[in-house]
């Protein structure tokens, strides 16, 4: 593994057993949610993953972080202490590595515990990984709040007091407080209003520069990926059908599915009618 790559995913598959319902359930088959996916992410870059709902984007990124157990494949992560295969580690061994990779969730309402105050939510990673420095936690949390553009008086409020955009900022603060190197944004802006999306995207871009972050950016909005990412994967039915620099994917798509996705982007000019390609006439494989 070259040290330029922060993450190298090779032939990663996630399969779920299909069970027959009944008194004694038995396995009657398998559903392949992620099929032999390989890619690499360079340090400091932004990789986009696009695809329609159900194409396996979320399952893929969750399997990378071992929130879902992958069935086969390897995930080489260039940690602070050298490269490790995340798939080979036990959950206990993964614990210290969790400080270096974090996730920002899609739904800013469901991803924050409604019964904890903002201060406790953002401080939780610190409490888990650096309980001995508890005196500095407050300072760090306030600094982080400032960095994501929230007022310091937010500390004693509960998540329900915030708007979607503000909550997403809280989620970002929680993900970044441990100073991770890899941040996975799982549809981090798709639940937000368009104007708020832009603010949050700009915030993510600023933070990337400041903290030298590497993003994996999952989205279904192609415009956002075009704007934000350098390289992209196009996923369809669990498999990667196309990958490469974003500009190339946008200007000369190779796979029919990519063409279909691109044809479904509405134009800013209201006179141009949206004319998505006909699914049935394409060779989607």
């Amino acid at each position: 593994m070259t040290t330029r790559n922060l993450l190298e995913v090779t032939n990663l598959s996630v399969k779920f057993p299909l069970l027959k319902r009944g008194l004694l359930s038995k396995q009657v088959g398998e559903f392949t949610a992620v099929d032999q996916v390989s890619f690499e992410v360079q340090r400091g870059s932004v990789l986009g993953i696009v695809g329609e709902s159900g194409s396996g984007k979320t399952t893929l990124v969750r399997a990378i972080l071992r929130a879902i157990e992958p069935s086969s494949g390897s995930v080489l992560f260039q940690g602070n202490d050298g490269a490790v295969d995340l798939c080979q580690l036990t959950h206990k061994q993964l614990m210290p590595l969790r400080t270096q990779m974090q996730m920002i969730f899609q739904d800013p309402f469901a991803s924050l515990n409604p019964r904890m105050k903002v201060a406790d939510i953002i401080a939780e990673p610190l409490v888990i990984h650096h309980p001995e420095q508890h005196l500095q936690h407050r300072q760090q949390v306030i600094k982080m709040l400032e960095r994501v553009g929230l007022e310091a008086d937010s500390l004693h409020r509960f998540p329900h007091a915030f708007s979607g955009g503000q909550r997403q900022r809280i989620g970002i603060a929680r993900a970044l407080i441990l100073n991770p190197s890899l941040v996975i944004c799982d549809e981090a802006v798709s639940a937000l209003d368009v104007s708020v999306q832009a603010q949050v995207l700009n915030l993510l871009a600023d933070l990337q520069e400041e903290m030298n972050l590497t993003y994996i950016f999952v989205a279904h909005d192609l415009n956002v990926v075009h704007h934000f990412c350098e390289r992209a994967l196009v996923m369809y039915r669990g498999a990667v059908v196309e990958s490469g620099p974003v500009d190339q994917i946008f200007t000369s798509p190779q796979h029919d599915y990519t063409k279909l996705l691109l044809s479904a982007i509405p134009s800013l000019d209201p006179d141009i009618k949206l004319a998505p390609l006909d699914r049935n006439s394409l060779d989607l494989g």
Binding site: R98, T99, Q106, S111, N113, P114, E124, P125, I128, G171
Partner: peptide
């Protein structure tokens, strides 16, 4: 399966 529980797991919570 709630997001905030998964979030806690990904933070490394026991």
């Amino acid at each position: 399966e709630e997001d905030f529980v998964i979030a806690a797991r990904l933070l490394g919570a026991s």
